[in-house]
Design a protein around this nucleic acid. Structure first.
Lengths: 192, 192
DNA sequence: GTCTATACGTTGATAGAC
DNA sequence: GTCTATCAACGTATAGAC
């Protein structure tokens, strides 16, 4: 039931794993909580499915970082995709952040397998760029963490971003400009 | 009672605002939970005091970014201080991250006052550097967010960092090297 | 499939002995 | 100040009518 998953994503993001109640998820989805348990059996299972559901978009963004490409277009595409994902699905990013924050008890396996494999490939790609003299000698994982942290900051710490913007929401136009700024900072950090 | 505050910081970081129980905090502090309520009255109040307690170290790190200084030493000192704080008090950073993640219901006021004032001063400082041609033309808040996000990533997403390091803890020596890498990335991102 | 009513466990908070 | 015992509120989950 898509409407429950969507409500759950928002409620888990706003109240945390434990703070989210099935009653509230049901209310925001517009049905009694018995239905939530009918479709997802347990709250724990619903939580897992919310996380898994986010993974699709996450992997799509990850796939924009193509190992075979040149550094400038590869990094530009990846940072842009991650920034757009933070804009498009802020709640999903926040659920994920909460999960990792508390030690990733549910998603530990994914981190150690799929993500680790993905990262190792990109680390080799970046090392190749350095050997070929295409970018400055940087620590590949330090660069990847900088990109993840910075791009996800706009989703995970959205409330802080808005407050420091004087309480005014960030418009689409402003966000587009911010994407360009982040891309420029990242590219320059590796000497491009 | 310092022992309770310290236990609470860790438990709130690991289980979240709602997931943390006074019973668990008490157990980790080595006393019955009635004592926790005796000293802090309510869990809510204890949570606020944990957040306030972190602010001291946070403000100390923030003060290393001196508006009057030159860009290179100022940014180097600030990034280093933030990285060292993430290493020294990871749980505090994580409690703070959880608070902002869920919309900063408790710390909203601080963000809009003290932090906003601090940031506005630094934005002007960075704008001054740009006008004087000392650094590249960057969006000051984009730069500050990049620094916050990247440095706090090592505390907030520590579990992920460790897993992607093959499950091996980061040694002090490795972390020192990582600080240098992050400083280099940040400095180069503004053209230094 | 949908919903109301309810059972059962957990947790924040306190009463009251020491 | 410290601790054990206890309670009231809340939240997950299900039974069972429709």
């Amino acid at each position: 039931m898509a409407v429950i998953l969507e409500a759950a994503e928002r409620v888990f993001a706003l109240y945390g794993h434990k703070g989210a109640t099935t009653e509230r998820i049901a209310r925001e989805a517009g049905l009694p909580k018995a239905n939530v348990h009918y479709y997802f059996k347990t709250k724990e299972n619903l939580y897992r499915q919310v996380l898994a559901h986010i993974l699709d978009d996450w992997m799509a963004a990850a796939s924009t970082f193509e190992p075979g490409h040149e550094p400038e277009p590869a990094l530009r595409a990846y940072v842009t995709a991650k920034m757009e994902l933070s804009r498009k699905r802020p709640y999903g990013s926040r659920v994920w952040a909460g999960e990792v924050l508390s030690g990733a008890p549910v998603m530990e396996k994914f981190l150690g397998t799929t993500l680790k494999t993905w990262m190792d490939e990109r680390v080799r790609t970046i090392e190749g760029w350095i050997e070929d003299g295409k970018i400055r000698a940087v620590d590949p994982s330090a660069l990847l963490f900088l990109i993840w942290a910075t791009t996800q900051h706009y989703a995970d710490f959205e409330r802080q971003v808005v407050i420091l913007n004087g309480g005014k929401k960030i418009t689409d136009k402003e966000y587009q400009a911010r994407i360009d700024e982040v891309v420029a900072l990242v590219l320059r950090s590796v000497g491009l």
